[in-house]
Amino acid sequence: MEVLVASATGVLVAVGVYLLLRGQTFPVIVGLTFLSYAANVFLFAIGRLAINRPPIISPDAAGYTDPLPQALVLTAIVISFGMTALIMVLALRGFLETGSDRVDLDTLDDAQAPREKPDPVRVGSPA
């Protein structure tokens, strides 16, 4: 079981890192999701792997598993879920406003692009 969990975490991280290094927003988001899955599985395993053991006190339990990693992983899931939703919206807004889903900033010529308070009347080349 240990080998399986460890290699699964490793594969998730590898996939996540690969996708993260892509140039479009959507693969980056999927890559981030894979990375956070890997982190969740990893956090779940840090309390050691055990089967059929309760995390809370019960009279007929033979032994216990560590409850803290489960609490940690719950927090981590909530946070990464919220973050994924946010970056999703951000990517979509960015795509709708610029018409491109490239991650890099080079698509905008920053010498000419409006830096502040985009105002079509005032923005132009400094003639």
């Binding site: 990464s80 973050m83 946010l86 960015g94 406003e97 991650v103 900033l105 905008l108 409006p114």
Partner: peptide, 17 residues
């Protein structure tokens, strides 16, 4: 604004990593 959104995506992504 578009530049802010583009830079914002990078900022959020690096912080998520």
């Amino acid at each position: 604004g578009a530049p802010r959104l583009k830079a914002g995506f990078q900022y959020v992504a690096i912080n998520l990593v």
